[in-house]
Amino acid sequence: MSVQVKQRRRGHVEPRPEGAVQEVAHQFEDIGQQNESYIVGMWSFLVTEIMFFGGIFMTYIVYRTKYPQTFTIASGELDWKAGFLNTLILLTSSLSMAFAVRNAQLGKRWRTLLCLGITILCAFGFLGVKTVEYSTKWAHHLVPGPNFHFSRHGGEQAAPADRGTSFVEDASPETSGGGAKPEGEIPQHEAQLFFGLYFASTGLHGVHVIIGIILLAYWGGLVQFNARAARDFIPIEMVGLYWHFVDIVWIFLYPLLYLIGSPKL
């Protein structure tokens, strides 16, 4: 009496009113349950990602409050214009990702593919700019390690005379005259911490971008060959959630790393 029976509806295909076709996996009862499971699952995974990057941000907060001056000076060494370009690229990629999801929802295969393609292109653009930035830092001995040496190159080829106008006023004449010896001014370890955090955070973010490219390409490929799995829009939406998250991380990284050093136009 107390047990009633529910009909099983496993493995059936449900056409969406909007156009996409979804298949119910065996462990789910209906498509609503399946879709929301994926969304909640992805969000709880993103919670772990938030906490993961949160650890880096935590470290950043601690050392920025500990060494505010050095962080400001060291931040001036980053190329805020390159960062601006990258933010632009990532936001654009987020827009095209959002459109990819929308087209997948509507079951528009070719448009989905086009949008995924644009997203991937943007991602490669982002990595390209990042590579240029990294190689500049390498050339300037700003990669933490035994070769680290921070002397202000003044971001955009600033002349040595430029130095006096910057943050620290009391540079003694012999160090500013020496050209390459401003160590008395900027503690090397503190600067190395900034660049360590710069490389750790942007590097981890970069790894996420690369994973994003792989995911996008994989699902793009499935859509291309019209695989059964790719008729469902939910996987694309999942990739989208991930990609937007990567974007959000950058939204915070950009001002914290590039813009705290009073950039000049």
Partner: peptide
């Protein structure tokens, strides 16, 4: 690997972090 110093007091880091 890189001695970035986040947790090394000799490099300005804080082990308590």
């Amino acid at each position: 690997a890189f001695r970035i110093g986040v947790f090394d007091p000799a490099l300005g880091g804080d082990p308590i972090l």
